[in-house]
Design a protein around this nucleic acid. Structure first.
Length: 790
DNA sequence: CGTCGCGATGTTTTT
DNA sequence: CATCGCGACG
C-alpha cells in the first residue's frame, strides 16, 4: 500500500486516491499520467474492488500493453481488462452478435478488405465513381458511422453532394457486410453503441459488469466511443478519463475535442485533477512546446513547468535536401553512440508521412545503425500472408466474401475473373454469400461446364480444409499450405527481387500462430487468432526491449518518450500537411501534432527542414513550416547546412533567392533572432563537430565527419550489439554462425539443429528442429535465445 | 483463362 | 516513384 503512494505529488495522490464517482484528469505531456492511472488501479485493487469490474480502455495496443506491464508490477496477475476500444467492442460483440444480425464467428474486415467490399457495394448500388472515388465514399461513410449515423438517418439529412453519393452506397455496403457476417472497424464501435442505446437490459448488464471504467486519451474519442462510455456509466458512474486537449490529433477520424472540453458538464459531480508538472523534458524543450501551442485557440490554457535541469537548446536545423538530412542525422546519432555512450534506443526520428522513411532507412543502414520502423502493415500486407490469412478467414467464416474472392483462384485453379463475377452476381441476386453461390454453381446461367466443375473442385477443397478448423493453429496452417500446394505456387509465381523469401514469411506466420496457441491455451480458437491479427496490425509486434533507433510517424509517437528526438520535414505542405490546410481547425490539429512530437523529447530535440525535397520523382523547392515562426527562435540553436561544392548544388542554389529564409521575413522579430542565431551556432556545444563545421568555411567538413563516424560506429556496434541492421553490413556478421546443421540451444526448447535458413537481412529466419518439435526463429530477434553449441 | 507490360494515377495520419 | 488497373497477347 505504501508503494502505491510513494513519491507522488499532491495532485497525483488526489487522483490515485479517488475511487468512486466521475473523474477528469487533465494531464499535460510527461506529467506522469500513466503512473497515476496504474497506481490508481493498484489502489482500487488494494481496496478490495474485484479486478474484473475494472476496464481500462485505450486507443492503441501499445498503450494498453504499457499499462498492463506497469499494473502487473504493482499488482501481479489481476484480471483487470485492458485494451483498445475496438477490442473491447469486438469481444462483447462476439457474444451479442445475434442481436445485430451477425453470428459469433463474424469477421473483422481490415481496411483493404472493406475497400474491396466498398467497391463491390458501389457497383451493386449502381453509383458512378466519377464524382467521388471509392476511397472518398468510404471515408464519408466511415465518418457517418463514427457519428452514429445510420443509413436511414443519412438519407434524410444528406446535404453535400459527396454525402448524397455515399448515402446511396451506405445501405448496400452495410447489407453486404451483414451477408458476409462481417464488420469493419467502425462497425465494432457502432454495433455496440447502438446495442447499448436500444437495449436497456444489455446496457444495464454491461454497466454493472464494468463498474469502474478508465479511458485513456479521452481527447481522441469520437461520438461512438463517447456514447459507449456514457452508456456504461449511468448506474455506476465511476468513470475516470485522462487526456489533454492539446494532444488531440485524431480529428480526421472523427475525434471530438468537445468530449473532453465538456466532460465537466456531462458529469457535474466530477472531480477534476490537473497534472501540469512535467517530469520528462528539459525547460528548453517545454518552452518551445508551450510557445507553439499557445497559437491555438481551441484549448484550455495549461501551465507546463518542470524541475528538470535546463539542458541543451533546441536545435532548428536546415539541410539542403532529404538525403543530407537523413545522412547527417544518422552521422550524429552514430557519433553520439560512439562518443557519449548513448544507445540506439535513446533516439527517435519522427515524420509526418510514412513515405519519408526511405532516405532515413538508407542512411541508417549505411551507417550500420540498428533501427526499427514502427509502422502498421508491412508483414500482414504481404501477398503470401494475406493469402493464407484469407484462407483462415474463410475457414472460420464461410460467408467472408472478400476472402473467398482472394483465394478462390490462388493457387490458380482455372477460375477466372468472369467466373468470379458470375458467382458474385448470383450471390447478390439471392442475397447469399459467394461460397454458398459456389455450391450452387450448376444453377448459374452462362457458367461454362468447365468453370462450374472448377468451382465445384474448389468447394470440395474448402470442405476438406474445414475439417481441420478446430485443430491447433499450427496444424491447420501446415495442413493448409500442404493441401493447397501453396509452396509450389509461391515458387511458380516468385518475383525475383524481394529480399525476403515468401516462404520465410509463411514460416513466420506459423511461428506467430504457435506463439498464439501457447499464450492462449484455452481460448486459442481460430476466431481469437484472427481477431488478434485484425486488431493489432503489427505496430507493436516487435518493439520493446530491442535496442534500436525508432522511426515513426508523429501520430504513432503519442504516449512515448525518448531522450533524443529528431523531427524531420518541418516544412510547409508537410507539417501542416497540404491536405490539412483548408480550415483553421485542421491547422490547429497539425500544430498539436508538432506539439506532441516536441514533447516526446526528454533531453535533446532537433527540428529540421530542407531547402528542397524529392517528391514523387522530381526535386522541388521547399518552404519552411509556418509553425517555425511561432517558436522562441532566440533561445534556440539555429544551424544552416553547409552548401556542398558541386555543379548541381550551385545550379540549384541560383534558383533560390539569397534571402531564402523562414517565411514572413517582414516580421522584424524573426530577422533579429535569425541574426543572433548565426552567432549562437558557433558557440553551440550541442554537437561540436557539426557546429564548428557548419559555422566555418571549410570545403567538405560534413562529409568528412560523416565517414569517420561511419567506420567508427560500425566497429563499436560489432562488438556490442546484435541487431538487424548490423547483419546487413555486407561481410562477416555475428549471425552468420547460424547455418544449416548448426547445433543450437534454446531456453525453452532445449537442444536442436538448424534445418533451413531463409530470408536475408532483418528477415532472416532459421528453422530449428528440436527433440520433439520444430520452430522458426527470426534471427534478428531471437539470436539471444539461440545459443550456438560447439 | 492467365500473364505480362504498359499507361495512367495518385500519394496523411490508424483501429 | 510505386502501385494499381486495365488492355492486349499467348
Amino acid at each position: 500500500m505504501e508503494a502505491i503512494f510513494e513519491g507522488l505529488t499532491d495532485a497525483q495522490t488526489k487522483a490515485v486516491r479517488h475511487i468512486d464517482g466521475p473523474m477528469l484528469i487533465l494531464a499535460g505531456p510527461g506529467s506522469g499520467k500513466t503512473r497515476v492511472v496504474t497506481h490508481r488501479i493498484a489502489n482500487m485493487l488494494a481496496h478490495g474492488i474485484p479486478a474484473w469490474q475494472i476496464a481500462a480502455l485505450t486507443f492503441t495496443n501499445k498503450a494498453a500493453d504499457e499499462m498492463r506491464t506497469r499494473v502487473d508490477a504493482l499488482a501481479p496477475n489481476q484480471p483487470v481488462w485492458m485494451g483498445t476500444f475496438h477490442r473491447f467492442c469486438a469481444q462483447h460483440l462476439r457474444r451479442l452478435a445475434p442481436m445485430v444480425g451477425l453470428s459469433e464467428n463474424y469477421s473483422i474486415y481490415d481496411t483493404s478488405d472493406s475497400k474491396q467490399a466498398m467497391k463491390r457495394a458501389i457497383e451493386a448500388a449502381g453509383v458512378s465513381t466519377s464524382h467521388a472515388s471509392p476511397d472518398q465514399i468510404a471515408a464519408t461513410i466511415s465518418h457517418a458511422k463514427n457519428r452514429l449515423t445510420s443509413p436511414e438517418m443519412m438519407e434524410g439529412q444528406a446535404l453535400r453532394p459527396r454525402e448524397a453519393i455515399a448515402a446511396r452506397v451506405y445501405p448496400v455496403y452495410q447489407q453486404q457486410l451483414l451477408t458476409a457476417n462481417a464488420v469493419d472497424f467502425d462497425d465494432l464501435l457502432l454495433h455496440i453503441a447502438r446495442l447499448l442505446r436500444e437495449n436497456p437490459e444489455v446496457r444495464a448488464e454491461l454497466d454493472t459488469r464494468h463498474k469502474y471504467i478508465l479511458v485513456d486519451e479521452y481527447q481522441d474519442t469520437n461520438l461512438a466511443q463517447y456514447a459507449i462510455v456514457r452508456a456504461l456509466s449511468i448506474d455506476c458512474p465511476n468513470l475516470a478519463v485522462t487526456g489533454d486537449p492539446d494532444q488531440s490529433i485524431y480529428g480526421w477520424r472523427g475525434a471530438d475535442l468537445n468530449n473532453i472540453l465538456d466532460f465537466e458538464k456531462d458529469y457535474p459531480s466530477v472531480t477534476t485533477v490537473r497534472l501540469e508538472k512535467n517530469y520528462r523534458s528539459t525547460p528548453n524543450i517545454l518552452r518551445v512546446a508551450d510557445q507553439l501551442i499557445r497559437h491555438n485557440t481551441q484549448r484550455k490554457q495549461k501551465d507546463l513547468f518542470t524541475d528538470n535541469p535546463e539542458g541543451d537548446a533546441v536545435v532548428l536545423r536546415f539541410y539542403d535536401d532529404g538525403y543530407q538530412e537523413a545522412d547527417e542525422i544518422a552521422s550524429e546519432i552514430a557519433a553520439a553512440i560512439m562518443g557519449q555512450s548513448m544507445r540506439p534506443s535513446d533516439f527517435a526520428v519522427f515524420y509526418r508521412m510514412n513515405a519519408m522513411t526511405r532516405s532515413l532507412e538508407h542512411a541508417l543502414r549505411s551507417h550500420s545503425l540498428p533501427y526499427q520502423i514502427v509502422n502498421g502493415l508491412e508483414f500482414y500486407q504481404r501477398r503470401e500472408i494475406k493469402d493464407l490469412l484469407a484462407y483462415l478467414h474463410l475457414i472460420n467464416n464461410p460467408s467472408h466474401d472478400v476472402a473467398l474472392t482472394r483465394v478462390i483462384n490462388v493457387p490458380t485453379r482455372g477460375i477466372g475473373a468472369k467466373t468470379i463475377s458470375r458467382l458474385r452476381v448470383f450471390a447478390d441476386f439471392h442475397g447469399i454469400p459467394m461460397l454458398a453461390a459456389a455450391r450452387r454453381a450448376n444453377e448459374i446461367e452462362g457458367l461454362a461446364k468447365r468453370s462450374a466443375s472448377m468451382v465445384a473442385k474448389f468447394v470440395r477443397l474448402y470442405d476438406h480444409l474445414q475439417i481441420k478448423a478446430t485443430a491447433p493453429l499450427e496444424d491447420l496452417l501446415r495442413y493448409l499450405v500442404e493441401e493447397t500446394a501453396y509452396e509450389a505456387h509461391l515458387e511458380k509465381t516468385a518475383v525475383e527481387q524481394q529480399d525476403t523469401s515468401p516462404m520465410a514469411n509463411v514460416d513466420e506466420l506459423i511461428t506467430a500462430a504457435v506463439e498464439f496457441d501457447r499464450q492462449h491455451p484455452e481460448d486459442g480458437s481460430l476466431d481469437a487468432f484472427l481477431e488478434q491479427v485484425a486488431l493489432v496490425a503489427d505496430t507493436d509486434a516487435f518493439e520493446n526491449e530491442n535496442d534500436r533507433i525508432t522511426l515513426m510517424t508523429l501520430h504513432a509517437a503519442k504516449g512515448l518518450e525518448f531522450p533524443r528526438v529528431f523531427i524531420i520535414g518541418v516544412e510547409d505542405d508537410m507539417l501542416p500537411h497540404s491536405r490539412s490546410k483548408s480550415s483553421q481547425l485542421e491547422v490547429e490539429e497539425e500544430r498539436r501534432l508538432l506539439f506532441v512530437g516536441i514533447t516526446r523529447a526528454k533531453e535533446q530535440l532537433q527540428l529540421s527542414c530542407c531547402k528542397r525535397r524529392a517528391m514523387r520523382g522530381d526535386v522541388r523547392p521547399v518552404i519552411p513550416s509556418p509553425f517555425l515562426n511561432e517558436l522562441p527562435l532566440t533561445e534556440m540553436s539555429r544551424v544552416e547546412s553547409s552548401p556542398k561544392q558541386d555543379w548541381f548544388d550551385e545550379e540549384m542554389d541560383q534558383s533560390y533567392p539569397d534571402s531564402w529564409d523562414l517565411p514572413d521575413e517582414s516580421d522584424p522579430q524573426v530577422r533579429e533572432t535569425t541574426d543572433q542565431n548565426a552567432e549562437l551556432d558557433q558557440d553551440s556545444d550541442y554537437d561540436q563537430d557539426a557546429g564548428n563545421q557548419d559555422a566555418g568555411n571549410e570545403q567538405t567538413p560534413t562529409v568528412e565527419s560523416a565517414s569517420t563516424a561511419k567506420t567508427g560506429t560500425g566497429s563499436s556496434l560489432q562488438s556490442g550489439l546484435q541487431t538487424a541492421a548490423e547483419m546487413m553490413a555486407k561481410k562477416s556478421t555475428p549471425l552468420s554462425v547460424y547455418r544449416e546443421g548448426t547445433q543450437v540451444r534454446h531456453v525453452d526448447y532445449g537442444d536442436g539443429t538448424i534445418v533451413t535458413v531463409s530470408g536475408r537481412g532483418p528477415k532472416r529466419i532459421a528453422r530449428v528442429k528440436f527433440a520433439e518439435e520444430e520452430h522458426s526463429f527470426r534471427l534478428a530477434f531471437a539470436a539471444d535465445d539461440l545459443e550456438v553449441v560447439e
